[in-house]
Write a protein that binds this DNA or RNA. Sequence first.
RNA 1: CCAGGGGUGGCGGAGCGGUCAAACGCACCUGGCUGUAAACCAGGCGCCCUUCGUGGCUGCGCAGGUUCGAAUCCUGCCCCCUGGA
Length: 378
Amino acid sequence: MFEVIKFSKKSKARLGIIKTFHGEIKTPAFVPVATKGTIKALPQIFFKEIGIQLAFVNTYHLVNHPGAEIIDKAGGIHKYANLNLPLMSDSGGFQVFSLAQKKRVKLRNDEETILVKIEEDRVVFRSNFNNKELEFTPEKSIDYQIKIGADLVMAFDECITYPTTYDYAKKATQRTHSWLLRCLDYFSKNKKNYQYIYGIIQGSVFEDLRKESAKFVINQPVDGIAVGGVSVGESKEEMRLAVNWISDYLPKDKPVHLLGVGRIDDIIDLVVYGIDTFDCSEPTRIARTGWLYQINDENNLKDFLTIIDIEKNIYKENFEKVDQKCNCYVCQNFTKAYLHHLFKEKEILASVLATYHNLYLMERFFEKIREEIANDKL
RNA sequence: CCAGGGGUGGCGGAGCGGUCAAACGCACCUGGCUGUAAACCAGGCGCCCUUCGUGGCUGCGCAGGUUCGAAUCCUGCCCCCUGGA
């Protein structure tokens, strides 16, 4: 399922290939987020020309709408959403974090309710979509993911909030471990024949917990390793340490995914620890809010991309291409002034073009990363 | 000419004696966005201040007046809208 083609002589970075039923993925690779079964604002027909290799869908959201059964009936998420590429599905573990962060939400009658309740053997969500209770157990998460039918599924974990205490982090990490065993058990008995499962390392910002978690996960019969609980508010140093600490434990014959990291500098700093895939909502989200990647120095990975805010007035009469050095459809055909106008007017096309462009450059960025690893420069 | 309605900050539009530098929306400006409750969110938005404040000044068509106090009440003027001759 996974094969390393080349290890860098300079770092733990590696070139690899993940083989799935729906296609092969050259790694390191970026995984655009398609939470509800769509990379927001981007029609599927563009995936290929952008170079998108795989995408990341979310169990929590899809279970709420349209429901795992519907997707199952439709023949799986690939068919249902016309996503003809390898897919990863998140387990809902991140929502344990992201919805718990908000803790309470006001109902119409002014009462407050808790969005997430974490128990030893399950998590109860108060759905933010329809306000119904929604129970996630490791078995349920996996069952949903099997029905959704992504190629690569994530074990159900608890993404620990930051900051946290050592004691809580330890307890939560152990809980994630016991959940992993339940996930693996259920998965092995019920999975679709093409599906693989990733176990998730937690441990928050504590070295011994991270290492302990890494050892535990790696010793289970998982197909891939994911690193979670990162980019939740901790400092960049803490994030780098969290990955560095476990980098020596990472297996060479299994793909390693870093959950939720997609900022340019973070990717550069973390790919050298042996990360193969990165999913992140950032490129598509900032695209929709007017931030565009721009090639800064195409010969220097560290300076490869910068960000411009296309809504700034300086672009109002800037009739240059969006990015002089970019070959994408957007940059070949539209000016900054026009993009500026689309954003100011909140035209839907603004999101479409910006998303296209950002993902295009993200793919070029990862091509550059692969090239650097091939040349032992990274 | 008669009858009625109205003129509020860049725009729309609340307020109708004090708690009003004036709701709310739009526009504008500044930030933010890392396993997406996100075509989003937060803050600012009369002028002034080496003190950023229960600070000073100006202010609700124009000019006066009543009042301790007026965007709010009164008088005159100017302008706009609707209906009628």
